[in-house]
Design a protein around this nucleic acid. Structure first.
Length: 278
DNA sequence: ACCCAGGGTGACG
DNA sequence: CGTCACCATGGG
């Protein structure tokens, strides 16, 4: 069935391609196939109308996944207050924060460390086909990202064979930790601080990756991942501040919109090649 | 060929 | 507490 959803300040292409998720593929011009929580969908957009071709009625699920209930003009209003941050709006307008599956987000961002977006996509795809369930809908075959139990059965050599490199050990350790009883879903009911602390007990998860999981899976709006690009943005916005001071400042200014502001700024920095002009 | 990427770990001070 | 070499890989 095909559902139509009226959206406001939402750009599907940017949202699924801005390096917060790794399992969206552009089938044809403007049409994106994705799998989330085991559910496949083919999505495209015409103006403010979002079209979803899916095997059954899961409109409510995708509305939540795409964060369509929040008005991102509120974020852009905040960004407009500063001439420096306002510059990102033309590039990033319509980017929404996705609400992704916790275990997939954990493993994906362990892989993301010191890695390229396109390569991360390839590795997550390989892991899904290798260890996850294969399904068929909408006339095409796809693979679901493996459960913790499925991925915990992998060996380090096998993972390295996929091109994972030294992160194979981190992935295996973290998968086993979840498979052996750490319930990630309890973090939905914890505070941001407690969630950050718990996430960093996983192998291969430091402050940056923990912030990504807190933001892209658990929906903590105050989470603010600082990677190389965002670091350059902060240095640009606060030339005299340390990264920690700049971080404190943006989290105070943007509050629950901080993480979304971060994503707008991150995308902007990558689009203009901030810091690479020399 | 060389540089870089949504950084983390462990050792050392 | 902060710093820093090291880590595999392959796309640009």
């Amino acid at each position: 069935m095909i559902a139509t959803i009226e959206t406001d300040c939402f750009d599907l292409a940017k949202t699924v391609q801005c390096a917060q998720a790794f399992r969206w593929k552009q089938e044809e011009e403007g049409r994106f196939f994705g799998v989330a929580f085991g559910h496949p969908v083919l999505a495209w957009q015409e103006g403010d109308q979002l079209f979803l071709d899916m095997p059954s009625d899961q409109e409510a699920f995708w509305t939540s996944y795409f964060d369509l209930s929040r008005n991102y003009y509120d974020l852009e209003k905040l960004l407009s207050n500063n001439e420096q941050t306002a510059a990102c709006i033309p590039y990033s307008t319509g980017i929404h924060l996705l609400k992704q599956e916790p275990f997939e987000t954990l493993i994906s961002f362990i892989i993301s460390a010191n890695n390229h977006f396109s390569r991360i996509c390839g590795l997550v795809e390989k892991i899904s086909w290798r260890y996850g369930e294969h399904k068929e809908t909408l006339g095409k075959e796809f693979a679901v990202f493996p459960t913790p139990q499925q991925l915990a059965l992998a060996t380090e050599e096998d993972l390295r064979g996929l091109g994972i490199g030294y992160r194979a050990e981190y992935i295996l350790k973290s998968s086993k930790k979840v498979a052996e009883g750490f319930d990630l879903f309890t973090l939905y009911n914890q505070s941001y601080a407690e969630t950050m602390k718990e996430l960093q007990t996983f192998s291969g998860v430091g402050p940056k990756v923990a912030n990504c999981i807190a933001l892209f899976a658990f929906g903590f709006g105050e989470a603010f991942p600082v990677d190389v690009w965002v670091k350059r943005v902060l240095e640009h916005l606060y030339p005299t501040y340390s990264t920690a001071e700049a971080l404190q400042s943006v989290q105070k200014i943007y509050g629950s919109w901080a993480g979304a502001a971060q994503q707008y700024l991150f995308h902007y920095a990558r689009m203009i090649g901030l810091g690479k002009e020399k």
